[in-house]
């Protein structure tokens, strides 16, 4: 059996305590919430923290508030994916997010994994998500223990893939992330939380804790999330398409399209969103938007499926997502219960 390396486990009861414990541990410390990302990585020796600071005892991280009337929805980062996608208000008014959360892995994992954990999910690559012995056989890679990125050996950077389902939705919805550090608290637009780099994929400082995600009031807009993977469950996305549109008098007044699984971060494709603004999502507009999203998508050969096919599917999935939004506008509802 693959086993965990030894570590010291700390269970703070408050944020303040957690921040202090982590600061005390220094670079050898790591936060752990649901553990569904960190623990497999530790078993494969991707991360080898000596001190684990658990966030699961901090009550404040487990709440969902607001989201009624014209108020924003606030989701604690420690809310499990199951709690998120079964939360009535979230399902009713933030269907795209509920859908993304419900599509993460399997029901077993969603009972453990948290929203915050999924947003902070380590980037993935099938040269990297392997055991130590396996990685030794390829002389390791840049992301851990080695120097080369085998996905693009001449590249100076790591191309591991953002594989979160909820991250592209958070970006498309224009969510805000609350980060609490030992000294500071800051609020960051979702898009600025992520970095286009397989190794430094978050702008979050290691000591900071993602505590809360604030979603804008649910009025006048609609959104959806489409996920591509080999199997109906368990698998990470090889492509995620999150689309957000604001309707105004039957026309798209504003739009955001974010792609997951095609880069080291959830990638906004403003050139595609721009195409649909001012349209009724006519077929031509959808086709053009899909083409515009297709062009900058750059899947690499490091996930399931061939990269050419995955790139091609960007067109299909953007089309499908936009058509879904168009159909829903036609039906007179703007929010969808997933």
């Amino acid at each position: 059996m693959l086993r965990l390396p030894p570590f010291t486990y700390l269970q703070p009861k408050s944020l303040r305590q957690a921040l202090r414990m982590k600061a005390d541990a220094g670079p050898d410390g790591a936060y752990i919430a649901g553990g569904t990302d960190l623990l497999p990585n530790m078993k494969r020796r991707h991360q080898e923290p000596k001190v684990l600071v658990s966030l699961s005892g901090i009550r404040a991280l487990g709440r969902i508030t607001g989201g009624t009337g014209g108020s924003a929805l606030s989701v604690g980062a420690g809310v499990t994916l199951t709690a998120l996608h079964t939360h009535r208000r979230t399902r009713k008014r933030y269907g795209a997010l509920a859908r993304a959360a419900e599509l993460v892995s399997s029901p077993l994992l969603r009972n453990m994994g948290t929203f915050g954990g999924n947003l902070c999910l380590d980037t993935r690559c099938n040269y990297y998500n392997q055991t130590y012995e396996w990685r030794k056989a390829i002389d390791f890679c840049m992301k851990k223990d080695g120097v080369i990125c085998w996905v693009a050996p001449s590249s100076p950077r790591c191309w591991a893939v953002s594989s979160s389902d909820t991250a592209p939705v958070a970006v498309a919805l224009g969510a805000e992330f609350v980060l609490v550090g030992p000294e500071t608290e800051r609020v960051l637009p979702a898009a600025e939380f992520f970095n286009d780099d397989g190794i430094r994929y978050l702008t979050k400082h290691p000591d900071e804790i993602l505590t809360e995600v604030r979603l804008p009031p649910a009025n006048g807009w609609d959104a959806t999330y489409w996920k591509l993977r080999r199997r109906g469950t368990i698998d990470f996305p090889v492509l995620g398409v999150a689309v957000w549109v604001r309707w105004d008098n039957g026309l798209v007044a504003d739009a955001r399209i974010a792609l997951g699984g095609v880069a080291s971060y959830p990638k906004l494709v403003p050139e595609a969103a721009a195409v649909v603004v001012g349209t009724e999502l006519e077929d031509d507009a959808i086709r053009e938007a899909a083409a515009a999203a297709y062009r900058p998508a750059k899947p690499m050969d490091n996930t399931d499926f061939g990269l050419a096919w995955r790139k091609e599917m960007v067109r299909n999935y953007v089309t499908g997502a936009l058509e879904e939004l168009k159909a829903r506008r036609g039906s007179g509802t703007t929010k969808r219960d997933v």
């Binding site: 486990y9 269970q11 752990i32 553990g35 569904t36 623990l39 497999p40 684990l52 658990s54 699961s56 199951t82 029901p107 077993l108 994992l109 009972n111 453990m112």
Partner: peptide, 13 residues
């Protein structure tokens, strides 16, 4: 009461 993956649950937790 919830089904979980015991290979990813820390005993100490």
């Amino acid at each position: 009461g919830r089904p979980v993956l015991s290979c990813l649950v820390l005993g100490v937790a």
